[in-house]
Design a protein around this nucleic acid. Structure first.
Lengths: 332, 332
DNA sequence: GTGAAAGCGCTAACAG
DNA sequence: CTGTTAGCGCTTTCAC
């Protein structure tokens, strides 16, 4: 069925060792032998068996990337960054989707260990990190994406979520809003908790009232649910700050269905600044994060740790979020 | 570093063979031995090395999925379907992004062969399919997603793209449009070619004029480029049909920036019906494809071929596209 | 029911 | 520079 290194050796009339050398240390084999062996490799269409290869050498050229939601453009942007950086250094990436579930996350971590990935990029679902230690014990490098765990000896690339939350509220209160809804997922999601902390802090400072509307998932459908809850409120807030753009898009959809004018009657502010935010019904103002750049940075950090383990120093890189003003927000 | 099966054997005072049996044929080992060994496996935190495992047995539990663009929500939907179906049967999926480039596609195919994936789901970049044969020769099952190659002995899940193209034009001409722009990527993309063929056919039948605006990539940025080209035309068509929603979103953005009213002055019709189509500035009418369902179906077909190779029969499953009418299209 | 032993395809010493 | 050989960690006969 499959052509093996042994077959190549036989056909080229050399030993398996030489074929192996052609593959891994071409500079050490005689030019003509090299050419001949490379020729037969091509003729036979030989592709080395990665399993066997790395079984022996002990390290693969694959990475794992575990994100909470591939359907969220923010994470696909991150993924693209990771992939580009990895592929530049000839690594392949397993993209895994934890769906914000610790069970699924665990399952994937196991699979990745089985697959003997060299390193893992992960946006952990929650704070419990013994699974991460399990990987590290096995010599798998781990770097955190969009998340930072204090006091851990590992690389991370994150965004200052507390600041992002503040930024949003400061902007909204600056516009004159004092009655604001904060739409978010469960506090077990660290990003949510941090952004929420920033929101609370800034609101207190500005003397604004913040009503928290909590939903289970951070997608458009749940955004619609959140909007219904808001519409059921005694007094409808004049501004709604959403923990991500997907929620905001859902909120806006329902608001518009109910004939509320954005931003005249209600301002809506999102978070992530995904590409679609700009083409939304009312172009969405949002707190922007450098998704692609985060992916690239994280992958570079991880690969550096993989390939130069001795000299590698763990780094915590933190980006700053930025406000992008569009049409969905306005003065009170 | 890593705990091996041998360590477990030693700790549980059994032979490696028995531990292997515990893992693979638990029913064959004595209950108490089973319990004891499972206990030590847990204590030691042993995770079998997938490489070694499948090196011997010859088959892995991983699949590859190669799509032209992960940033396109249509394909992330497909990917979710694939992942859900695969994970239900305990398979992991490598998500690879070919970026519509044959080179990248080749590169990934090689990586997947190296990784000894059991099967591959692919939306091939172009018609040349010798790379697919290379995989099949190695015993890797291949199924085509969103694409059908006639006369090939393989499974495929596709949508009738010719019909989709027709559907769009029929709808638009039914609305009274006779001067239509068809915005699409290069004809080397089979979906584009097929949809284009449907467009041409239906236009001819209805006696409508179709101006083809071709761009290099099918994303929003290129949609904006396309719109600029359209605006430069002598007479601006009354309807624009885009080969995917990303293009349509870009087109609409630029149109609106130029103060053209949709649908009063120009109707815009997309293709794919991605989730964001509904929340666009003007909710986008679109030709809908059952993305998630396609992913599930394709993965099931593939896994069936992997696991029941003898009884497996290749199937060509073709879904029908459907028109979803929203606000971006109107009577001429 | 369990153990011993032979590989799976490859890499990495080490001889020659 | 090339060949030989001993494993990597596991599965899989085949005896016991």
């Amino acid at each position: 069925m499959s052509v093996s290194l042994r077959d190549v050796a036989k056909a080229a009339k050399v030993s398996v060792g030489t074929v192996s050398n052609v593959l891994n240390r071409p500079e050490v084999v005689a030019p003509e032998t090299l050419a001949r062996v490379q020729g037969t490799i091509k003729d036979l269409g030989f592709v080395p068996n990665g399993f066997a290869r790395h079984l022996r050498s002990g390290n693969s050229r694959t990475l794992g990337l575990i994100v909470p939601d591939v359907a969220n453009p923010f994470f696909t942007e991150v993924a693209r960054g990771v992939e580009d950086a990895a592929s530049k250094r000839d690594y392949a990436v397993f993209l895994c989707n934890s769906d914000e579930s610790a069970t699924k996350e665990d399952r994937y971590i196991n699979i990745l260990i089985e697959q003997q990935v060299r390193g893992v990029l992960i946006t952990p679902t929650d704070v419990k990190s013994d699974r991460l230690d399990a990987m590290r014990e096995r010599g798998i490098a781990v770097t955190l994406v969009d998340r930072e765990i204090k006091g851990r000896k590992q690389c991370s690339v994150s965004v200052d979520d507390i600041h992002g939350g503040q930024l949003g509220i400061e902007y909204l209160t600056g516009l004159g809003h004092t009655d604001i809804a904060w739409v978010c997922g469960p506090d077990s999601i660290p990003q949510v908790a941090d952004r929420g902390a920033g929101v609370a802090k800034a609101a207190k400072f500005a003397g604004a009232t913040v009503e928290t509307i909590r939903v289970s998932l951070m997608n458009t459908t749940q955004g619609e649910e959140a909007a219904k809850k808001i519409l059921a409120l005694k007094t409808i807030p004049t501004a709604i700050f959403c923990a991500n753009d997907l929620l905001a898009l859902g909120v806006m959809r329902t608001l518009r269905e109910n004939k509320l004018r954005i931003p005249e009657q209600v301002s809506v502010l999102g978070y992530d600044d995904i590409e679609f935010a700009a083409s939304a019904a009312v172009p969405l103002s949002s707190i922007s994060q450098p998704a692609y750049q985060m992916g690239v940075t994280a992958a570079d950090l991880l690969l550096n740790e993989c390939e130069e383990a001795e000299t590698h120093e763990h780094q915590q890189i933190r980006f700053q979020p930025q406000l992008v003003e569009r049409a969905s927000t306005g003065k009170r």
